[in-house]
Design a protein around this nucleic acid. Structure first.
Length: 943
RNA sequence: GCCAAAGUGGCGGAAUCGGCAGACGCGCUGGACUCAAAAUCCAGUGUCCUUAACAGACGUGUGGGUUCGAUUCCCACCUUUGGUACCA
C-alpha cells in the first residue's frame, strides 16, 4: 500500500473491532478494574460537536492504555435523551419525540464509531429506553419510600418513621399524611419558577438572572403544587464527603458554595407593646424554645448574633405571612401596593439594575429582645422568603445591605463592633457613617462588651438559649429540588392520586406497584405546551389516566421528571445494563464501582454532579450501592473555541477606528467617545502586524486590531464539524490533534493548520515503517531485527518512560511531543531496530488506534494490539554517559561543560574551576562560594 | 462586587523539587529534489546591539520582595476567561 490512507484503514479496523467484539467488557472484573466514564451526551439534532471528542478521546486513551496494562476496563457510552431540547426539536420538525430522538441517537452512534472509540457498545443505553426509565421510576419510588433520620444523618425506610401519638390517634389518613410530609420525595405548595415561554416550572438552578437557562425566557414566581426532593437533608454530607474525592479544589468549592451552609442563630423578636415585654420575657424563660413560631413573635435568622444590640429595625419579605396580621390600617394601602408589585415582578426585575433598595413600613414594631426597645418592622424585597425565616433583624452598622436600606429610609445606625485601632475609617465607623462588616470588639452591647466577634457570638447564643429566646441554627442556600415538569418528554411519575366518588382527589397518594413499572408515556397527538400549568399528560386517554385498584379509583400523576433524573444514575446501569430484577446486581456493583475517572464539561460542575451524588447517597443509605460517593476522580475538559479572528472597527463612512477607542454598546460596538455605532470588519492575517502587546493594521499602525478566538456558534459561522475533519484528515488525526492542542483542562482555539501538522506527523510515522513504493503493506528495508545502539536505546526507553508517565497524568500533549521527537530521531537513522518500532506503535496506539493496528499488522502480527502488553522501559538505558552542565556566575549562565553523567559534586566543581572560558570571567574576582548540584549545575558566587 | 482559573516568541503551547526559558507543533525564511508545481527531505527562526563572527545586553502581564539562583515561592496591582449575584 503506497500512502497512509485513513479513509481505507479506519473503516477497516472499526469493522474488525465490531465483528470481533474486541472491546467487550467481562461481566465481572478479573484482577484490577478501572471504570472510565464520559459524561454521556445529549443527542441533539446538530450532531457531534468537536468539543465532544476532546473528552471522549482522553477517556479512550485511558481505557486503551489500562487494557494494555492488563486491567479489566469498563468504558461505556450512552445517551441522555429525555428533556426539553429534544421535545422542542420534535415540535419544530413535527416528528414525535421518540422518533426524532432515535434518529439523533443513530447519528451520534455513527459519529462516535467513526472516531474509533473503544466502547463496549453492548452496554449502550438511552435514558429514554423503557427498560432504563423503569428503574429511574423505581429509584423515585425509593426516594418516596425514604425519610431522613436527622439523628443518624441517614435515609431510612418510611415504615421506620416514628409516628407521634397525637397523629396516630387521629387515624390512618392522618398517619398517611404525616408520612407523606417526611418522605424524600414529597409534594409541596411552593412558590415556583413558572416559565410561560417553555410552559413549565423550572428548578432554581435552571433559572439564570430571572430567565430560563434554556431559551432565555422570562420566569415568574407563582404558587403551585409540585414534587420536591429533599436534597437539603443531605446538605452536610454532600459537603463533608467532598473531602475524600480527587476533584480540583475549584470544583469542590463550587459545590460547597452552592450548598452554602452557614451557621448562626434563630432569634425571636416579640411583637408586643413595650409595656408587656418583661412579661413576655419571663414566660419565655420558663419554657423551651418553641418549635413552631408563636403568633406574637417575629423569628429571624442571623449569622451575626453578636450584633444583636445594633439591630435598629427589622425587615420581612413581601410574601411573609405576618404581613397581613401586623400591618397597621394607616399603612395598609402602601403595603398592599408594594407587595402586589413585588409579586408581579419576576426575579429578574427584582435583582435588576442598580439594586437600589426599596421598601415600605408596616406601621408595626417588635421589641429587640436584648435592649427591650421597640424597633420598626419594614417590608423589602431584598429579604427573600425562601431563605432562613424570611425575616431579618437589620444591623445597618455592620451589614452592607442593611446600611444602604437605612440610608435610603433614614433609619438609625448604631455601631456595636469596634474596628481595629489602625483602621483608616475608624472614627466614621464608630459614628455610624460607614458600614463595617469585619470582625472586631463588641461595644455598646451590654454583657458582650470587649469580646471578640467569635466569642461574642458564642456568648449571646448561650445567654439567649438559656432564656428561651434563641437557638443555634444552620441554613443552606441550597433549596429542596423542584422535581416536576409540565412537559411531555420525560419520565412519568409512578404515582396515583386517590379519587372520591365525585372524582375529586382525596389528597391520599399511592405508589404504583414496582411490578407494574415502567409507567410508559401515553400516546398523544398533541403534546405541545399551552402556556398554562396543566401538564400535557392530562390530555391522555382515560384508559391511561385512570386506574382502579381494589375498588378505589385513582388518577395518574401527570407531571414528568426533569432531564436530570436519568443522568443521576446511568453510571450504575452501565455495570449491569440488562438486569431485569434490579437497578444493578449487588456483586457487580461492588466489583466495578466507584467510577475511577469521570471526564466531562465544566457546565455540569454543580447541577448534574450534585444531583447524582444525592441520589447515590440515598441508594447507599438504603443498601443498594456499596460506596458513599460515585465519582472518585473528576476532570473537566476545557472548551474548544473557533479559530482566532482579527477584527477591526470602521465607522459608517468606512474610516478605521482603533480597537482602543471602542466599547460594547447595547447592540454592538460603538466609539467610546462619540458613541457612534461601528461595523466589525474581519481582517486577514496578512494585513495585521504585532506592535508591542497589540495587533495593529499593517498599513496603519495607529489602528489597533482586536485578536481573539470566539466560542463556536452557528451565528458566527465558526463551527468545526467533526465529520468534515474526519473526511479530510482522518479520525486518528482528529483524535491526535485534539489531544495535542494543549492541556485537557484548558480553553483553547481551533487551528486547521494544527490539524494538518499532526496529520503530517502520522504520515511521517507511516513512512518511517512502510515502504510507500512497494505493493501492499511492506516494511521499509531499514527496519531490521537488530539490537538498538546505546543512543537508539536511550531514545526508545526515555520515550516509553515519558509517554507512560504523561498518559497517567493526563498530559497527552507532551506525550505526543515525545513521540514526535522519537520519529524525528529515527527518520534520520538508516537502521531502525524492529523492537523500537514496535514500541512506538504500541505507545501511539491509544491515540491513533486505526493506524497503529494497520502498522502492527504490517510488522507481522496477526492479532489486534488492543491487549498487547504496554512497552516497558529500563531506566538505566535512558541515561547518557556524558551530560552537559551549565556553569553560572552569580546565577547567570556563562558557559556549559561536558562531564560524565555520574560526576560527584567535587568532580563537578573541579572540572568547572578548570574550565578555560570561565577563567576569563573569574579574572580578578574572588570565588566566595560554589554551589554545585550534581547532574544539574554549578554556580560560583564571586566578588 | 464576590469566587475560580489563567497571563511565556508571529500563533498553540513546553519547562517533576527554585537550577540551561521557549521542548513539540504551526507559521515564516533559505536550500536540496523537480522542466515546473505539489509532496518530501535538510538547515535556520525570542528581541536588541555590532559589518559579521566570537561574544554581549535584555527577555516568562506590571511593580516590589525572598534567594547564590525565580516562569516556578511571597506581597501588591493590572488584564483576560469562566462561574455567581441582595442567602442576612
Amino acid at each position: 500500500m503506497p500512502r497512509y490512507n485513513p479513509a481505507v484503514i479506519e473503516p477497516k479496523w472499526q469493522l474488525h473491532w465490531e465483528n470481533n467484539k474486541t472491546f467487550r467488557t467481562p461481566e465481572m472484573p478479573s484482577g484490577d478494574k478501572v471504570y472510565i466514564l464520559d459524561m454521556f451526551p445529549y443527542p441533539s439534532g446538530a450532531g457531534l460537536h468537536v468539543g465532544h471528542p476532546e473528552g471522549y478521546t482522553a477517556t479512550d486513551i485511558q481505557a486503551r492504555y489500562w487494557r494494555m496494562r492488563g486491567k479489566s476496563v469498563l468504558h461505556p457510552m450512552g445517551y441522555d435523551a429525555f428533556g426539553l431540547p429534544a421535545e422542542e426539536y420534535a415540535i419544530r420538525t413535527n416528528t414525535p419525540p421518540r422518533v426524532s430522538t432515535e434518529q439523533n441517537i443513530a447519528n451520534f452512534t455513527r459519529q462516535l464509531k467513526m472516531l474509533g472509540f473503544s466502547y463496549d457498545w453492548d452496554r449502550c443505553l438511552a435514558t429514554t429506553d423503557r427498560e432504563y426509565f423503569r428503574w429511574t421510576q423505581w429509584i423515585f419510588l425509593l426516594l418516596f419510600d425514604t425519610w431522613f433520620d436527622l439523628e443518624q444523618q441517614k435515609g431510612r425506610p418510611i415504615s421506620e418513621l416514628p409516628i407521634p401519638a397525637d397523629v396516630a390517634a387521629k387515624g390512618e389518613d392522618a398517619v398517611s399524611l404525616y408520612r407523606d410530609k417526611h418522605r424524600l420525595a414529597y409534594q409541596d405548595e411552593a412558590l415556583v419558577n413558572w416559565c410561560p415561554g417553555l410552559g413549565t416550572v423550572l428548578a432554581n438552578e435552571e433559572v439564570i438572572d430571572g430567565k430560563s437557562e434554556r431559551g432565555n425566557h422570562p420566569v415568574q414566581r407563582m404558587p403551585l403544587r409540585q414534587w420536591m426532593l429533599r436534597i437539603t437533608a443531605y446538605g452536610d454530607r454532600l459537603i463533608s464527603d467532598l473531602e475524600g474525592l480527587d476533584w480540583t479544589p475549584g470544583i469542590k468549592k463550587l459545590q460547597a458554595d452552592w450548598i452554602g451552609r452557614s451557621t448562626g442563630a434563630e432569634v425571636d423578636f416579640p411583637i408586643v407593646p413595650a409595656s408587656e415585654f418583661s412579661k413576655w420575657q419571663s414566660t419565655r424563660r420558663g419554657q423551651a424554645y418553641p418549635e413552631s413560631i408563636p403568633v406574637d413573635v417575629l423569628r429571624i435568622y442571623t449569622t451575626r448574633p453578636d450584633t444583636l444590640y445594633g439591630a435598629t429595625y427589622m425587615v420581612i419579605a413581601p410574601e411573609h405571612p405576618v404581613v397581613k396580621t401586623i400591618t397597621t390600617p394607616e399603612q395598609s394601602a402602601a403595603v398592599k401596593q408594594y407587595c402586589d408589585n413585588a409579586a408581579f415582578k419576576s426575579d429578574r426585575d427584582r435583582t435588576d439594575g442598580d439594586k437600589r433598595k426599596t421598601g415600605v413600613f408596616t406601621g408595626a414594631y417588635a421589641i429587640n429582645p436584648v435592649t427591650g426597645k421597640p424597633i420598626p418592622i419594614w417590608i423589602a424585597d431584598y429579604v427573600l422568603i425562601g431563605y432562613g425565616t424570611g425575616a431579618i433583624m437589620a444591623v445597618p452598622a455592620h451589614d452592607d445591605r442593611d446600611f444602604e436600606f437605612a440610608k435610603a429610609f433614614q433609619l438609625p445606625i448604631q455601631c456595636v463592633v469596634e474596628p481595629s485601632k489602625n483602621d483608616a475609617d475608624r472614627e466614621t465607623i464608630l459614628a455610624g457613617g460607614v458600614c463595617f462588616t469585619g470582625d472586631g470588639l463588641a461595644i455598646n452591647s451590654g454583657s458582650l462588651d470587649g469580646l471578640g466577634t467569635d466569642a461574642a457570638k458564642a456568648k449571646i447564643i448561650d445567654e439567649l438559649t438559656a432564656s428561651g429566646v434563641a437557638r443555634q441554627a444552620i441554613n443552606y442556600k441550597l433549596r429542596d429540588w423542584l422535581f416536576s415538569r409540565q412537559r411531555f418528554w420525560g419520565e412519568p411519575f409512578p404515582i396515583l392520586h386517590e379519587l372520591d366518588a365525585a372524582g375529586k382527589p382525596t389528597g391520599i397518594i399511592r405508589a404504583v406497584d414496582t411490578q407494574e413499572l415502567p409507567v410508559d408515556l401515553p400516546q398523544l397527538e398533541d403534546y405541545k405546551p399551552h402556556g398554562r400549568p396543566e401538564p400535557p399528560l392530562a390530555k391522555a386517554d382515560d384508559s391511561w389516566l385512570y386506574v382502579t385498584i381494589d375498588g378505589k379509583r385513582y388518577r395518574r400523576e401527570t407531571n414528568t421528571m426533569p432531564q436530570w433524573a436519568g443522568s443521576c444514575w446511568y453510571y450504575l446501569r452501565f455495570i449491569d445494563p440488562t438486569n431485569t430484577s434490579a437497578i444493578v446486581d449487588r456483586a457487580k456493583e461492588k466489583a466495578w464501582m466507584p467510577v475511577d475517572l469521570y471526564i466531562g464539561g465544566a457546565e455540569h460542575a454543580v447541577l448534574h454532579l450534585l444531583y447524582a451524588r444525592f441520589w447515590h447517597k440515598v441508594l447507599f443509605d438504603r443498601g443498594y450501592v456499596s460506596h458513599a460517593e460515585p465519582f472518585h476522580k473528576l476532570v473537566n475538559q476545557g472548551m474548544i473555541l473557533g479559530e482566532v479572528e482579527y477584527t477591526g472597527f470602521q465607522t459608517a463612512s468606512g474610516e478605521w477606528v482603533s480597537a482602543a477607542h471602542t466599547e460594547k454598546g447595547e447592540t454592538g460596538y460603538v466609539h467610546s467617545k462619540t458613541k457612534e455605532a461601528l461595523n466589525s470588519i474581519s481582517v486577514a492575517d496578512s494585513d495585521v502586524t504585532k506592535s508591542g502587546d497589540n495587533f495593529v493594521l499593517a498599513s496603519d499602525p495607529s489602528i489597533r486590531i482586536d485578536s481573539r478566538a470566539h466560542k463556536m456558534s452557528k451565528a458566527r459561522g465558526n463551527v468545526v464539524n467533526p465529520d468534515a475533519v474526519v473526511t479530510e484528515y482522518g479520525a486518528d488525526s482528529l483524535r491526535l490533534y485534539e489531544m495535542f492542542m494543549g492541556p485537557l483542562e484548558a480553553t483553547k482555539p481551533w487551528s486547521t493548520t494544527g490539524v494538518n501538522g499532526v496529520r503530517n506527523f502520522l504520515d511521517r510515522v507511516w513512512r518511517l515503517m512502510i515502504d510507500t513504493h512497494a505493493e501492499g503493506n511492506t516494511l521499509v528495508d531499514s527496519i531490521q531485527d537488530v539490537e538498538p545502539t546505546a543512543e537508539q536505546n536511550r531514545v526508545i526507553h526515555s520515550t516509553i518512560m515519558a509517554v507512560t508517565r504523561d498518559i497517567e497524568s493526563l498530559s497527552f500533549n507532551t506525550a505526543i511531543a515525545r513521540m514526535m521527537e522519537f520519529v524525528n530521531f529515527f527518520t534520520k537513522e538508516s537502521v531502525r531496530p524492529r523492537k523500537g518500532m514496535e514500541a512506538l506503535i504500541l505507545l501511539l496506539s491509544p491515540y491513533a488506534p486505526h493506524m497503529a493496528e494497520e502498522v502492527w499488522q504490517a510488522l507481522g502480527n496477526t492479532d489486534s494490539l488492543a491487549y498487547q502488553a504496554w512497552p516497558v522501559f529500563d531506566e538505566s538505558l535512558t541515561k547518557a554517559s556524558e551530560i552537559e552542565v551549565p556553569l553560572q556566575i552569580n546565577g547567570k549562565l556563562r558557559t556549559k561543560l561536558m562531564v560524565p553523567a555520574d560526576s560527584t559534586a567535587e568532580q563537578l566543581e573541579q572540572a568547572a574551576r578548570g574550565h578555560e572560558r570561565l577563567a576569563e570571567w573569574l579574572d580578578g574576582k574572588q570565588i566566595v562560594k560554589a554551589i554545585v548540584v550534581p547532574g544539574r549545575m554549578v554556580n560560583f558566587v564571586v566578588k
